[in-house]
Simulated assay, not measured.
Amino acid sequence: MPLQSMTGFARREGTCGRYRWAWELRSVNGKGLDLRLRLPAGTEHLETDVRKCAGDNFSRGNMQVNLTVSASETSVEPVINQGALSAVLSLREQLRDVIDAAPLRLDTLLSIRGIVDFREPEEQEGERAARDSDILAGLRLAIADMTAMREGEGVALYRVLLEQIDRIETLTSGIEADPSRSVPVITARLASQIALVMDGGTKVDPDRLYAEVALLAAKADIREEIDRLRTHVAAARDLLKKGGPVGRKLDFLSQEFNRESNTICSKSNAAAVTAAGIELKVVIDQFREQVQNLE
């Protein structure tokens, strides 16, 4: 399953009968899937289908989903207000003996407010069902377009992240192979420091001295941190190869990378190791920044 970025855009539009519709989808980074829908009046019943369709295809991202629907032509039909017409005719009968009741003309009736209304014809159930089906089909196409865009960016992110993981591994190997970590160098450095103490005339209990030296040597050992970095490198490569929504897991690994690099820098007693540890932290920060874009 390919990696996906959380950044994407898609637009689809079409017509169904006298209706024109258009979908516009925008997606940016988010901790989860946050859908913000804007559906026009008369299409609110589509919300459940829209959310399901988006949820079936995406797991993360702040996504705006906008739908516009307009009628390509406006037609109206006359509707007679039977109550108002009956009232007018009844009044005419009541006033027959009071005033001269001339025959009612059609234009006279039409001039009386409320007798005839003009309104858009009611939408038939079949017409509405066909429109909704066409609109949802358009949504699926727009989601497919956005998926393709997010996957395209995912391919680019894959290459960048893989290069950064390779760099982390190279720096880890360099730290591991640094001469300052060899037994002869460590022994010589400790012997030199002990000689300085002894030459100063300070009396030191030999057993206590050796115990302190062993403790310092143990605290300065970064074997465990190096092993964990290698384990995290292998796990990160496996996740990238697996693909799919692995952004959260890679973000967790980036935090673990950072923890180990901090420990290496704090334990380092050699300039070369410290410099490599700092560069390692820079690469890890870049790695984590890119991971924030992954679904």
Rank of each mutant, 00 (worst) to 15 (best):
R20H: 07
G126F: 01
R248F: 03
G17I: 05
D205E: 14
V204L: 14
I194D: 00
A54L: 12
L110A: 09
R228H: 11
A130T: 10
A217F: 01
H232M: 04
A137G: 13
A148H: 01
I284N: 08
R96L: 09
R288H: 11
I284Y: 03
I186T: 09
Q164I: 12
G154H: 09
A276S: 09
E125Q: 11
M198Q: 12
A270C: 08
E151A: 08
G244A: 09
L280N: 00
A275K: 08
G138R: 01
T7N: 06
R181L: 13
L109V: 10
A235V: 14
A234I: 12
E122K: 08
R230V: 02
R259Y: 01
D178T: 12
G55D: 11
G154A: 06
R131F: 01
R92M: 13
T43Q: 12
D100T: 15
R18E: 13
L91N: 15
H232K: 04
G243D: 00
E176W: 07
A188N: 05
K52P: 00
A195G: 06
A156P: 00
Q64F: 10
L110S: 05
R237H: 13
K52Q: 11
G61P: 03
I186H: 02
S133A: 15
L37E: 04
V282T: 14
A188L: 02
L37M: 06
S261E: 04
D227G: 11
G55S: 15
K281S: 03
D107M: 06
R51M: 10
C16L: 05
V246K: 01
D132Y: 05
I186C: 00
D100A: 14
F9P: 05
R208A: 14
R208L: 12
L91S: 12
E77L: 13
R128T: 14
S182W: 02
S266I: 11
P245W: 05
A71G: 01
S173K: 03
A87S: 12
A137T: 11
E225N: 02
Q124S: 15
R288Y: 06
S70V: 14
S180K: 00
N269R: 04
E127A: 14
G30A: 10
Q124P: 07
I222F: 01
V183M: 04
P245M: 09
S5R: 04
A87T: 15
V79M: 04
A276T: 05
R189Y: 01
I194R: 00
I112E: 01
L35F: 03
K241C: 05
R92C: 08
K249Q: 15
Q164E: 08
G8C: 07
S90M: 08
A276P: 03
Y210S: 07
F257A: 10
D199T: 15
R230L: 05
G114Q: 09
R140G: 15
L157I: 10
L209M: 12
R237V: 13
D221F: 13
A275S: 11
E122V: 15
A270F: 04
V283H: 01
A22S: 15
N81M: 04
G244W: 02
I226D: 02
T187I: 02
D107R: 08
Q124M: 11
V79Q: 08
E47C: 09
V69G: 03
K52H: 05
L196S: 08
L215W: 04
L239C: 06
T274P: 01
A102T: 13
G55P: 07
L37Y: 02
T263A: 10
D238S: 13
V98K: 07
